[in-house]
Amino acid sequence: MEENKMTVSSPFGLHLVHLDLKGAPPKVSYLAEIFPLFRTLGANGLLIEYEDMFPYEGELKPLRAEHAYSASEIKEILNLAELHELEVIPLVQTFGHMEFVLKHQEFSHLREVEMFPNALSPHKEESLMLVSAMIDQVVALHDGLRWFHVGSDEVYYLGEGEESKQWLQKEENSIEKLYLSHMKAVASCMVSSHPEVKPIVWDDMLRGVSEETLTESGVAQLMEPMIWDYAADLDEDDKGGYSEKVKENVEKQLGLSSLEIDTFMSESSGTFPGSDIFTLVTQVCFYLKPSVDELLERNRFVTGWFSPYHRKRRIVHPIMMHHFQPDALSLLAKWNAVMQELQAALERVFYMCTLEEWMEENVHPSLHKLQEVVDDLDKAIQGQS
């Protein structure tokens, strides 16, 4: 892909979509559906944070998730990105957010703080060897890279490890210098091994560093900072404003009548890939628990005639049963149907572990509560016959 194709759309050249694969990674088949939409909406690049979804080999093989992409799937993702003119920038964490590495026994000795798997120790040579090996394997599967993101945001507990505490006892040392020295080492390894690739780093750990300290560290010459922020008040004149026209265009592309969240409860929810999941998840989030609670906790026939006391003893008045059993059966049938539909929709996009987690967290508690009441009703009725 020619460089000039990537630089004509804006002063910044690249409008990136961050694919953070550390939670609920999608199947490649879904990426094939969503990449055209990214392009339509104005993106021309992808920042892919692989986490444990990369097919690490050799001594790094323990880092792979159960459903990690294969090397051929990575190539398929890259081919899809090229097809839709999306430049790929891989992101591999090299300091903070290292749980996917440091949770494993083989690498736990490289933690900054022994009991926390989030941050890498910057004092061990093996730490640098580890991140260099990770970077090398990722670069090897990506042809023609211009940029490589080394993460390094939110390095919590840096300076609280025993080696760091000793290092910080020297008056000239500081946590800022400790951070910068590790980042310089990572960047120097990249420049040495992959001189054609420019490292990028998140800026949050650099914001409080003085210009003098930054200059002395040499990091500024080796790495490009990328703003890390969720604020809505960034400089709109330089990063693209949000206007009514932009909103209308996005609504059109997504097939939504409105982007306002209160409309999601009552209207058709889009034509974009995965919009069926959006519709079903919206139903579950807004209606499942309230509808079950309404029946079990606020329906006077249930609270008065089939409370936990009655259920435990299987006591039910036949007349009162007719006032709430049909409602309970109807509600259970409705949500079982939604659950089956949602499960099928989720299976198309996500791996089973993601599906199971979401259903157990958001669907099963209310559904089980409802099922138990229906089962208790059946037992009580059978006990009277």
Rank of each mutant, 00 (worst) to 15 (best):
His149Cys: 01
Ser164Gly: 12
Ala133Asp: 12
Asp153Asn: 10
Phe148Ser: 05
Ser132Val: 04
Val131Asp: 05
Leu130Ala: 06
Ser164Ile: 11
Leu168Phe: 09
Gly144Arg: 09
Phe148Arg: 08
Ile135Leu: 06
Leu141Phe: 09
Tyr156Asn: 08
Ala133Asn: 07
Gly161Lys: 10
Val155His: 06
Gln166Pro: 00
Leu130Glu: 03
Leu130Phe: 08
Gln166Tyr: 08
Leu130Gly: 03
Gly159Tyr: 08
Lys165Pro: 07
Tyr157Ser: 09
Tyr157Trp: 13
Glu154Pro: 11
Gly159Gln: 11
His149Trp: 10
Asp143Thr: 13
Lys165His: 07
Val138Cys: 03
Glu160Met: 15
Val139Glu: 02
Val150Gly: 03
Val131Trp: 06
Val150Ser: 01
Gly144Phe: 02
Glu171Pro: 08
Glu163Ile: 13
Glu162Ile: 14
Tyr156Glu: 07
Gln166Val: 14
Val138Pro: 01
Trp147Pro: 05
Arg146Asp: 07
Glu126Phe: 06
Ser152Met: 11
Glu126Tyr: 07
Glu126Ser: 14
Ala140His: 13
Gln137Phe: 04
Gly151Gln: 13
Glu160Ser: 11
Met134Trp: 05
Asp153Ile: 09
Leu145Cys: 08
Leu128Arg: 00
Ser127Val: 13
Glu171Arg: 13
Ser152His: 08
Val150Ile: 15
Ala140Asp: 14
Gln169Ala: 09
Leu145Met: 06
Ala140Lys: 12
Val131Leu: 09
Asp143His: 14
Val138Arg: 00
Ser127Phe: 12
Gly159Glu: 11
Ala140Val: 01
Ala133Lys: 06
Glu160Arg: 10
Glu162Val: 13
Trp167Met: 12
Trp147Gly: 02
Ile135His: 01
Lys170His: 10
Lys165Thr: 06
Leu168His: 09
Leu145Pro: 10
Asp136Leu: 04
Tyr156Gly: 07
Ser132Lys: 12
Glu163Ala: 15
Ser132Phe: 02
Arg146Ile: 02
Ala133Phe: 00
Leu168Ser: 10
Gln137Cys: 04
His149Asp: 05
Ala133Trp: 00
Asp153Ser: 09
Asp143Ala: 14
Val155Asp: 05
His142Met: 04
His149Phe: 09
Val155Arg: 03
